[in-house]
Computed example of a mutant assay.
Amino acid sequence: MVDLMPLVKKDNPFLNNYRLQTVLDDYGLENETPHRALSDAKTTFELATKLIENKVLKI
């Protein structure tokens, strides 16, 4: 399990807040049905993939 929040804060320390929707907007990702467990999980996975592409997350 990996907590993405510290990585997002390190990558972009100037966001107004770090709610999932704000972070997704900043990374150009869309959550079609927010506040639904499966949709939020899939979008969080997309965020992790984006962080890997940006060389912020190393697995």
Rank of each mutant, 00 (worst) to 15 (best):
V8D: 02
Y27Q: 01
H35P: 00
N31C: 15
G28S: 02
T22H: 02
M1C: 07
K10S: 13
K55G: 03
D40M: 06
K10C: 01
K9G: 03
L4S: 06
A41P: 04
V23H: 02
N12H: 12
D25N: 14
L24Q: 11
P6T: 13
M5S: 07
P13S: 15
Y27G: 03
T49N: 10
K50T: 07
V56Q: 05
V8E: 00
V23E: 00
D40Q: 06
M1I: 09
T44N: 10
D25H: 14
L57V: 04
I52P: 00
L29E: 07
V56L: 08
D40F: 06
K58H: 11
G28P: 03
V2F: 07
A41I: 12
L4V: 03
T49L: 12
V23C: 02
T22I: 09
A41M: 09
N12V: 11
A41G: 06
R36H: 13
D11Q: 08
N17L: 05
M5I: 15
E32I: 07
V23R: 01
L57Y: 14
M5N: 12
A37I: 14
K10T: 08
Q21H: 06
D26E: 10
T49A: 12
D11S: 15
A48V: 00
L57A: 06
L57N: 05
L15I: 08
L7Q: 04
L4I: 08
A48M: 11
D25I: 09
K9A: 07
N54E: 15
G28F: 00
T44Q: 09
Y18A: 01
V56I: 15
L7Y: 12
M1N: 05
A48G: 15
P6Y: 12
K10A: 13
D26H: 15
L47M: 03
K58N: 09
D11T: 03
F45H: 07
K9Q: 15
R19S: 14
D11H: 14
V8F: 03
N17K: 05
D3V: 06
G28W: 00
T33D: 13
Q21I: 09
A37P: 01
E46W: 02
D25T: 10
N54M: 06
L24S: 04
L20I: 08
M1Q: 04
P13I: 12
N16L: 12
F14W: 03
E46D: 14
